[in-house]
């Protein structure tokens, strides 16, 4: 992974941000990401992101839990060690519903959270470049990736004209790396700025 060049525009109101996103996209710039302090509803659509299929993954994990519970319990109680409990049937499905349900929920929840962390690349000691420290406080930070054709000065002027309160250019690693937040770390890998 190499460093890339980004133009960063910070907005302080989501009501200004929405039209700005639209204008930037219409002008043909590629929005790398918008960092917000809270989930802004509809921003993903405005940016043209596709729907997440995390819930589908959740469903698959859930039915995995269901089948795990049912197959394990029925194998154990009918094949491996059929216990005689008061002469009742070995295949006692109604009595297995609670555990089946619990395992469905457990598999779905654990699987989804792990998938979420994997997709978003979140883990302890993962460090990423933060374009603005107040992106987790009160600023909506729009980051636009520069290409060979991008005129940075023009773009900065454009961002100012559509309501950005603060505009700057940053060269940054777009990917994550192992690191700690109490230390300044430079990547030892290639530091050449790459232009798409």
């Amino acid at each position: 992974m190499a460093k890339k060049k980004f133009v960063v525009g910070c907005f302080d109101d989501e009501a200004v941000l929405f039209p700005a996103v639209k204008k930037v996209r219409t002008a043909g710039y590629k929005i790398h990401d918008v960092y917000t302090p809270f989930p802004v509803h509809g921003l993903d659509h405005a940016m043209g992101l596709r729907e997440t299929s995390l819930h589908t993954a959740g469903f698959i994990y859930g039915i995995t839990g269901t089948t795990t519970a049912l197959s394990c319990i029925s194998w154990i109680f009918t094949k491996d060690w059929p216990l005689n409990i008061g002469g009742k049937p070995h295949f006692a499905l109604p009595a297995w519903i609670p555990i089946t349900f619990e395992l469905t929920v457990l598999f779905a929840a654990v699987g989804m959270v792990l998938t979420f962390c994997y997709l978003c690349q979140l883990a302890p000691f993962v460090k990423k470049h933060h374009f603005h420290a107040r992106a987790t406080d009160d600023l909506f930070v729009m980051v636009i990736e520069c290409t060979a054709k991008t005129n940075e000065a023009d773009l900065q002027g454009f961002l100012n004209s559509i309501g950005a309160k603060e505009v700057n250019v940053q060269e940054a690693e777009a990917d994550w790396w192992f690191g700690r937040y109490d230390q300044e770390q430079q990547l030892i890998r290639d530091t050449k700025v790459e232009v798409a």
Partner: peptide
Amino acid sequence: FGWTGSTKHWQRHE
């Protein structure tokens, strides 16, 4: 966990 507030992350988070 290295949370940034990315829109895609928020979408998945929601």
